Simulated scan of single mutants.
Amino acid sequence: MPTLWIQSCLIAPPPAPPPLLLPFWVKSKVHLASVTDLTVLTMLILQISAVVSAFISLLLTLIALGSDHWVLIGNLNRGLWKFCRPSASSYICFTYSMDLEPDSYHATRAFLFFGMIAGAISCIGLCCTFFPFQLGSISKTKSSAIASLIAAGCVLIAMATFTGCLTPQRSSEWSYGWSFGLGWASFPLFLITGGLAFPLDRAVSTAA
């Protein structure tokens, strides 16, 4: 009896079952599915980020172009199209005369307007990436990226022109307003939009 008990204790446990061996085509499909899921997730993140950046930059450009708080001189607010002064109950605004406006105002308006058009093209093109249609051989993402960089260049020229022409007029009662700040803020956002659209274009080309 003791001998049988010792022999039963010395018997080795049964070997573990061999690992499940998948065929190579199954392994390749699993790997391809994981890579595809990662690519789709990357594309979705880039799409959403680019659209949000394009929309915000375009919105800031529109607000800056149409608002009247570019320069604050005491109680007077000056914009690109008119200036306003306080009255008894509210502000009274007066439109600039075309003959009396400095050339810097015309240049700032023109380049901001061009930047607004390019930004709108970029925003529309990025929104169209969510829909499965193609305009011939035109890449929607690459066109949007180029349009964003063009918009950034136009905004940079406009803001640099306005800043350089008004800098010598600084005084203790003279300061830039929030419209001026929004104009400058749209410039890096257009660059960010272009920086997001180019990787998105590469991801779309890879997925295709």
Rank of each mutant, 00 (worst) to 15 (best):
98 M>V: 13
164 G>T: 02
137 S>Q: 12
24 F>G: 09
25 W>H: 13
189 L>R: 02
119 G>H: 06
58 L>T: 03
109 R>C: 01
203 A>C: 09
198 F>Q: 13
84 C>S: 07
134 Q>P: 10
112 L>F: 02
136 G>F: 15
3 T>E: 11
180 F>M: 08
30 V>W: 10
193 T>A: 03
81 W>M: 04
137 S>C: 11
136 G>P: 15
5 W>S: 12
17 P>Y: 11
43 M>N: 12
31 H>A: 13
116 M>V: 02
172 S>R: 12
76 L>N: 08
45 I>T: 09
12 A>S: 14
206 T>K: 15
194 G>M: 06
129 T>H: 11
109 R>G: 00
147 A>E: 05
79 G>K: 02
81 W>S: 02
118 A>R: 00
99 D>S: 15
163 T>F: 10
68 D>V: 03
193 T>Q: 08
1 M>T: 10
196 L>C: 05
185 A>M: 06
76 L>M: 15
127 C>H: 11
153 G>C: 03
139 S>W: 11
177 G>F: 00
122 S>F: 02
207 A>P: 09
112 L>I: 04
83 F>P: 04
201 D>R: 10
207 A>V: 08
128 C>S: 13
126 L>P: 06
202 R>S: 15
52 V>P: 03
169 Q>H: 12
69 H>I: 07
61 T>G: 06
154 C>Y: 00
144 S>K: 08
58 L>F: 07
194 G>D: 07
90 S>A: 03
66 G>P: 00
43 M>F: 00
12 A>D: 12
124 I>P: 10
51 V>Q: 07
118 A>G: 12
5 W>L: 14
64 A>W: 01
177 G>M: 04
197 A>T: 05
84 C>Q: 01
72 L>Y: 05
150 I>Q: 01
55 F>C: 07
190 F>I: 02
196 L>R: 00
148 S>Q: 09
57 S>N: 04
146 I>E: 02
204 V>K: 14
104 S>F: 09
197 A>C: 05
130 F>S: 11
201 D>V: 05
205 S>D: 15
205 S>M: 12
117 I>N: 03
3 T>C: 07
164 G>F: 10
135 L>H: 15
78 R>K: 05
115 G>C: 02
124 I>H: 10
80 L>K: 01
79 G>C: 04
20 L>F: 14
110 A>Q: 01
106 H>L: 09
31 H>Y: 06
118 A>Q: 01
40 V>P: 14
30 V>M: 14
33 A>K: 15
202 R>N: 12
139 S>F: 09
89 S>P: 04
